[in-house]
Simulated scan of single mutants.
Amino acid sequence: MRFVQFADAHGDPEAAVVHNGARYPLGVPMRQLIDDGLNSALCRGEHAIAESAPLASDVGGGALIPFQPSSFRDFMTFYEHTCGTSGTGVVSAEWYEQPVFYFSNTSTCVPGDGSMVAYPPGSEQLDFEAEVAAVITGRGTDLTVAEAARHVFGYTILNDWSARDTQLREMRVGLGPAKGKDFATTIGPCIVTADEYGSRRTSDGRLDADVRAYVNGHLLGADNLVNMSWRFEELIAHASRGSAVDSGDIIGSGTAGNGGCLLELRSNHPDPPPYLSPGDEVRIEVDGLGSITNVVGYPTKAPKVGRARPPLRPRHAVDTALFGVPAGHTYSEGRM
């Protein structure tokens, strides 16, 4: 089944099941649908299609994100993308040993209905990342791969927007990515349930679905989920190791290869495309999941925090030049 979320007459989010192009309201928000589990959602959907009238085409016209995720782990599973963005053209030995992820912000999720994504403060290198996310139902810890598969509610398209210049600066410190990623994430336009999307599985359990990325209508990247080096249930099992995955979490596939982002194309292309500019339209399409589209907005401004201060009581020599203070300068220790 395919579920979407719309704003009801009171402006509150409500889930609907899509059948033959029509939307049938379910009377609960998408998050409750996810929390109650896949079997319950399928029963609700079947009942709504059989017993309810579809929504009028002009009702709930304002697109919403499918739901507000609880947490967002984004992995790096596509070999070609990993090679193409490594800076060396090769993958580190550690990449082969286990899937690796980072946490991103769930408070900045935006719908893919043509809504605007503004440039984050201080960046001049805005990029897209074409991905798919698994939506988690139920809490689990130290899951086996088979157990993890039972925690997949469904799948949705994901665009992990990236400020590459900001990302590079912070990762040089040995931490991150953080501010290079947390300003916007697009998910949508729907959630396709695990039972329906599972029909795309190959003999080794991977999903067979083309992923395409367009900028201003021009195809820049094309890959397939079969090129993920780990299956989603393996990512979920790893995420739960010594920790927990929980209902409403999303697990990102990582960026598709062969042009799934501009950084890869700029690293390996004789005529590299520019980073995104205000007014550019980015569309991500995935077979069986639909498409999400956003327009790039103008740069935003935010107050600066400022440079690091030198230690007040240093245990080692302080590089005063890098701290921007005169050599021999001392601080008087005041107390608040």
Rank of each mutant, 00 (worst) to 15 (best):
T255N: 04
I251S: 00
L207M: 14
V211F: 14
S203F: 12
A15M: 06
C109M: 13
A302C: 05
T185A: 04
G112C: 08
V100C: 07
G334I: 09
V296A: 03
G61S: 15
G221F: 03
R231Q: 05
S332I: 09
Y298P: 02
S86C: 12
S123D: 07
L289H: 01
G45D: 05
V100H: 11
E124I: 13
G138Y: 03
A50S: 14
C83D: 11
H316N: 13
T156H: 06
V286R: 04
D249M: 03
T106D: 02
T193I: 02
V152F: 00
S123P: 06
F75K: 00
G221W: 03
A130Q: 06
P303R: 08
I49L: 09
V286G: 05
D35V: 12
Y155L: 06
I250S: 00
V90W: 15
S104D: 07
L263N: 08
G138S: 14
H269L: 03
T144I: 15
W95Q: 04
R139L: 12
H19F: 00
T85H: 02
T193A: 04
P278Q: 14
G248S: 01
L143K: 07
D223R: 11
P310G: 06
G297H: 11
R307E: 06
E124C: 10
N105L: 04
R266W: 11
D223Y: 02
V245E: 01
T300K: 08
L265G: 14
S86T: 07
A133W: 00
E129Y: 06
V245I: 02
P69L: 06
F128Y: 15
A133E: 08
E285F: 00
G198H: 03
V173P: 00
R164C: 14
P270A: 10
K301Y: 05
G140A: 07
E170W: 05
R169M: 09
G112D: 09
G252T: 01
A256W: 01
A184D: 02
G122W: 10
V145T: 03
P189I: 04
G62P: 10
Y331S: 14
G217H: 13
G21C: 14
F323K: 10
H238F: 03
S162W: 08
W161V: 02
N216H: 10
R200P: 05
V226F: 00
I187M: 10
P278N: 13
T77G: 02
R212L: 08
V110E: 04
D246F: 07
G328K: 10
A237G: 03
M336N: 15
D195M: 11
I65Q: 09
D113C: 09
V295D: 15
H10K: 11
G290E: 08
V226Y: 05
H238S: 05
W161Q: 10
H238I: 00
V325E: 08
T108L: 00
I49T: 12
M30C: 09
T293K: 01
R266I: 15
S86D: 13
A317K: 07
G84E: 08
S52G: 13
S332C: 12
E94W: 07
D165Q: 04
D204M: 03
C261Q: 11
D142K: 02
P270C: 12
R164L: 07
P272C: 03
D113T: 10
F103S: 15
D74N: 03
D35F: 01
N105C: 06
N20F: 04
R2N: 02
N268A: 14
R307Y: 06
Y298A: 05
D58F: 09
D142M: 00
L42T: 01
A327I: 15
Y214A: 05
